[in-house]
């Protein structure tokens, strides 16, 4: 266990160091969701009777989808370049390799979340701290799972990586649209709502919205936690298995 924690810290530090060396990239990573929040959020506010309470958690879930996919892309470039091979020959714990990488994305997500919440406060966002903390914890669990799945995809797509781009581009939009992150699914036709039920991201979005409005006991929180846990389990299982099979 101590080896696992040490190795996770090692991988996390390695991933994070380039951002510290070149903070400009970090600044742009911060700006992107903010742009989204203000441009899209303002539009949406005029169109429906939704609130920041509804929109902020959605933005965070959206970033929790794109962030881990980004870390899969990093892994793909490392697989193509050769540095992944060198890390695989080292005694690093295999699960720590998956978790440490995703935690870097999660750290960025955490910073983004703090920034968004701070900026949304004067616009009328109500802060329920316990709910927000619990919500972010759930996102970390989901992120680790999604990150691992995107690593599996990256490993399968090496050496050319075409499959990685195809699948991530293809999967991202249905997952987002059918989760109700940007637009409410409940107002859509019946078939759309049914498809939404098999989308784990939808449960996460519902759970986040309950948590961010302070309803910690809502049943949707339980469903969201179960969905995140399931994605994490499947992701870590598939990820470590893929690495054991050799690269």
């Amino acid at each position: 266990m101590t080896t696992f924690l040490r190795d996770t810290a090692t991988v996390f530090t390695r991933e994070f160091t380039p951002s510290l060396r070149n903070p400009t990239t970090l600044v742009f990573e911060m700006l992107q969701p903010l742009l989204f929040l203000f441009l899209f959020g303002s539009l949406l506010k005029g169109a429906t009777d939704t609130s920041w309470q509804w929109f902020v958690p959605g933005i965070l879930v959206m970033m929790c989808l794109t962030g881990p996919m980004g870390s899969g892309y990093n892994l793909l470039t490392e697989a193509i370049g050769g540095s992944l091979e060198r890390l695989m020959v080292s005694p690093l714990n295999r699960t720590a390799m998956l978790v440490g990488r995703t935690l870097k994305e999660m750290a960025v997500l955490f910073l983004q979340a703090v920034l968004i919440i701070l900026l949304a406060l004067p616009l009328g966002f109500e802060l329920h701290l316990a709910g927000v903390i619990l919500g972010l914890a759930l996102l970390i669990v989901l992120g680790v799972g999604l990150g691992s799945l995107s690593f599996v995809l990256a490993l399968k797509s090496a050496p050319d990586g075409t499959m990685f781009y195809l699948v991530t581009q293809w999967a991202l939009f249905p997952l987002l649209l059918l989760s109700g992150v940007l637009l409410p699914v409940d107002s859509g036709p019946a078939w759309l709502r049914i498809v939404g039920y098999v989308n784990p991201v939808k449960y996460l979005v519902d759970a986040q919205r309950s948590l961010f409005s302070g309803q910690l006991g809502d049943i949707s929180v339980l469903y969201g936690a179960a969905a995140a846990g399931l994605v994490a389990l499947i992701g870590l299982y598939a990820g470590t298995r893929a690495m054991r099979k050799g690269i």
Binding site: T10, R14, T17, E78, S83, E85, R86
Partner: peptide, 29 residues
């Protein structure tokens, strides 16, 4: 107990040379 130098590049493109060496030492505990 072993060292390995593969056919491709061992260092990641995003990393400074020394940072990669320190990270490598950390990988070995």
């Amino acid at each position: 107990r072993i060292g390995y130098v593969g056919q491709k590049n061992s260092a990641g493109e995003n990393y400074r040379v020394r940072d990669e060496l320190v990270a490598q030492g950390r990988c070995y505990g």
